[in-house]
Computed example of a mutant assay.
Amino acid sequence: MPAEDFAPINSEWLEKAGNLWTTPFVDKPSERVIVDPILLSHAATLFKKTPKYFWENPDEAARMVCQACELYDITPVGHYLWADYWGLDYGAEIKIQETSPPAITKYPIKTPEDIDNFEVKSPEELKEGPTFREHFKALDTVLEEYPQMFAPITQLAGPMEVATNWAGIEDVFMWMITEPELIDKLVYKAADHMVNACKVTAEKYGANVMITGSVVASGDLLEREQIKRFSYKPECKAVKDVIKAGAGPGVYYHLCGNHTNSFDMWKNAPMTPFTVVQIGNDGKNVFPAGKLVEHFGDRCTCFGVVDTKLIDRGTPRQVYDQTAEQLQAGKDSPRGFIIGGSCECPTFAPPANVHAMVKAAKDYGKYEKF
């Protein structure tokens, strides 16, 4: 769908939504907490397009996301990204799938010897590579057609996530046990890559929002000391180096999955005034917003979560009630609060469930102290 096929965005809505979104960062009072369901391919379903179409057409994907933001009355920012970024730049092969994001089918690192010989791409090489070529199509579309909804994002996740886009997760986990020094080398190479990628975005747009965090390195898969060694420490180095290089200022820690045994270490991670921390689960339950605010509220903006399984399979009332509970516990966090899904909005989630989150924010998300 070209730009002319979409209705114009309502300027009054956009101004109001922009104020809601930026309140935590600019200390400008607004009405309520903003909702960010992390829309990606779900937006395509609203326009009768497939996830495959979404991932194959980054410019149109960006338009659909921006339009969906107005439809749902949520964070007005255009997104285009997926989990398995950066493999193509290093020789991986990917498969574009009909109903889910692209997935790597062949990895560039196959043996322990490959890790020693593996070289991180320079910013100049990454800039001309396949990942940024598609990523910039989306970002440039937002900048040109929806400039008030533009954020210069670099999608990275953490060093373990980048590492498992270079070598299969089974190999990485096996070497972590049999030859952990190899994985030390790999995750610090991943950290260097993260810095170089952020430099590219910052050079092109004058700023950068670094999406990082810990997805693979969660308590469901790793012990605390493994998370600290292979995820937390190299990630902290990467974030510090990004900030030193002037490739910030945005830092979004997306800690997906269960972080019961490791969430506290992230309290000391490097942060800027434009930092958001989101934690998915505390055991089998969503991470309590009150607990998030207690440990992180004095350092950053807290992103409270609603269970994505509930958004996908629950009733609107269930989604509404959990959103309301999280809002009441977290909305007056000292540096601001956002509410959204614990991860990407499920592709085929009922629109009524996304709407239920927004309705709860309007009913229970009004600022009282912040």
Rank of each mutant, 00 (worst) to 15 (best):
F173G: 07
F173V: 12
F173D: 08
M174E: 13
M174W: 08
W175I: 08
W175C: 07
I177L: 14
I177F: 11
T178R: 14
E181Y: 14
E181C: 11
L182W: 02
L182F: 04
L182D: 10
L182N: 13
I183R: 03
I183V: 15
I183N: 07
D184A: 13
K185H: 11
K185Y: 05
K185S: 14
L186M: 11
V187K: 01
V187Q: 02
Y188E: 12
Y188R: 12
Y188V: 11
K189S: 09
A190V: 07
A190H: 01
A190Y: 01
A191F: 00
A191T: 03
A191L: 02
D192H: 04
M194Q: 10
M194W: 01
M194L: 10
M194A: 15
M194I: 11
N196I: 03
C198D: 10
C198W: 00
C198Q: 06
T201Y: 00
T201R: 00
A202Q: 03
A202Y: 00
E203Q: 10
K204E: 13
K204S: 09
Y205K: 07
Y205R: 07
Y205D: 12
G206W: 02
A207K: 06
N208E: 08
N208Q: 07
V209Y: 03
I211M: 15
I211T: 12
I211C: 13
T212V: 12
T212Y: 00
T212Q: 08
G213K: 04
S214K: 03
S214G: 15
V215E: 15
V216G: 07
V216N: 08
A217H: 03
S218E: 15
S218C: 15
D220V: 06
L221C: 11
E223C: 10
E225S: 12
Q226V: 12
I227C: 07
I227E: 05
I227M: 08
K228N: 09
R229T: 13
R229Y: 04
F230M: 09
F230R: 04
F230L: 13
F230H: 04
F230P: 03
F230N: 05
S231A: 14
S231Q: 15
Y232H: 09
Y232S: 09
K233A: 14
P234I: 03
P234F: 00
P234C: 04
E235R: 06
C236D: 10
K237T: 12
K237M: 14
K237Q: 12
A238F: 00
V239K: 01
V239L: 05
K240E: 15
K240G: 05
K240R: 15
K240L: 09
